[in-house]
Amino acid sequence: MVLSILEWLEGTRWSIALLESIWVWPLVESTHVLTLGLFVGTTIMMDLRLLGVTFRQVPVSAFTGRMLPWTRVGFAIMTVTGLLLFYSNPVRYYTNVFFRLKVLVLAIAGFNAWFFHARAHRTVDEWGAEPTPPRAARIAGAVSIVGWTIVVISGRLIAYNWFDCDIQPQPDLINWAAGCVLGAE
């Protein structure tokens, strides 16, 4: 069902044009990679503050008030360029184990950020000035750093075709994780 929609998407004119373009695809991909410095970079700085490792004198509310808008700009660029890249080759990405791992961890990291803002950050006025934030905030910072690091690494590895469905035989685990439809080619 999902696969048939993606197969249709892959056949649309703009998807083919994007994948085959000499300049646009590399520019979109490069923008996606370079924006990591802004999005993940500012996220990590905030996480290090939440862990109480650095910027210990800077109130956490200063980070969420003054740095988070820049993180959001980075996230918006990552999302737009990321969706474009997915649109250029949807079936291949959908059946790529690293892409699937990336999306899974992305969801966890996203939930972690939402959960932090919905819970611990609500009382930031009470603890935000302390050099070492409370346990819940430190956990959020740690989960964020580990999560986004996995997202970056698995995202980079999507480029390699080691486990692609059209390269068989693969271990059963890989074919299952990648959602390969065997014998359909």
Binding site: V33, V40, W70, W148, T149, V152, I153
Partner: peptide, 18 residues
């Protein structure tokens, strides 16, 4: 190694941009 290089890019971007 390339993927770790990218993780370094993230850290570098954050430390510079702040």
């Amino acid at each position: 190694i390339e993927a770790v290089h990218l993780v370094g890019l993230c850290l570098l971007g954050g430390a510079l941009l702040i």
